[in-house]
């Protein structure tokens, strides 16, 4: 079990969340080529180590979160609301 520190609900069991996955830059569907679009759909970085990903707190605040997690140790460093702009440090 891992705990995700939800900015609205506090530390909660990961079972309460939906895992959305890697955050990739979405190409503009009006101008993108089919190949670029498929690349966005299917290709994954599949990082081993620290990565930034999207989770959804479906049994809590129902907000989409940006989570920093280490995929080898499953340690979680931070979770912030995806819709709230965080200034770069």
């Amino acid at each position: 079990m891992i705990l995700l520190p939800c900015p609205w609900c506090g530390p909660r069991d990961s079972d309460e969340f939906g895992y959305i996955g890697e955050i990739g830059a979405r190409p503009d569907p009006r101008t993108t080529t089919p190949e670029e679009w498929r690349d966005y759909l299917y290709m994954r970085r599949n990082v081993a180590g620290w990565t930034t990903e999207r989770w959804y707190h479906r049994m809590g605040c129902r907000r989409y979160l940006t989570v920093e997690r280490n995929t080898i140790s499953n340690q979680v460093r931070s979770a912030t609301d995806a819709a709230v702009q965080v200034d770069e440090p």
């Binding site: 990961s14 079972d15 996955g21 081993a48 080898i72 140790s73 499953n74």
Partner: peptide, 13 residues
Amino acid sequence: DPFASYSTRGSLE
């Protein structure tokens, strides 16, 4: 498991 990982630890869930 419900999320991607390179960890091979089992879980109680």
